[in-house]
Amino acid sequence: MIGVGKVKQYGNVLDKPLNKGKQEVSLSAFAFLFSELVQYNQTQVDNIGELERRLEDAGYAVGARVLELLCHRDKVILDPDMRGYYSGQSSSILSLKDLSLGMGNRRETRLLGILSFVHSTVWKVLFGKVADSLEKGTEHEDEYMISEKELLVNKFISIPKDMGTFNCGAFVAGIVRGVLDGAGFPAVVTAHFVPMEGQQRPRTTILIKFAEEVLQREARLG
């Protein structure tokens, strides 16, 4: 008999935890969709800066939603099956009381907190891995960089020579800006190719430049 003693019996269908569903989508399907997004936007603009801005705006909408979703799912991370909450088991980390007190639904309020949230949590949900690196800019206090050797959206894309420094990572920059903006950290976010020594392909760096108010608040918080 298969699975006897393993499957928990729920008296009421409403007590069953929600199925998390498939976490992955086809890379090809995404690549074609993204390619089409770039091609469509290309027909709507007459210069490259404009195209970059449009891709960023598309990403911004994704970022704003991703932040909302991840904050909401935060409690799920504490208790993957949510069994404790629904069936009232005493062993659960999270009880009904905690939820009503607003535990779970965590939102980062500090600069480094939100940056590592973007670098690990957001990246993991969107790209299935943590970003390659998160660094602080050396020249300016308000600049941070998230670098990726091979950005997922750029996996199949070769930029023609006549397009100069254009980077389709602008879409990802938009996502980062959407997340930061939604969390109350307004910033200017741009994507750049950075040549790597001993590597044939440049890596993509997402440059985050925070607004002055963010740094002032951060200083006040100590």
Partner: peptide
């Protein structure tokens, strides 16, 4: 899958 490639035209893609 490269948005900058035009169908039936000569292939100029660095990654390829």
């Amino acid at each position: 899958k490269n948005p900058f490639y035009e169908m039936e035209m000569p292939i100029r893609c660095e990654l390829f």
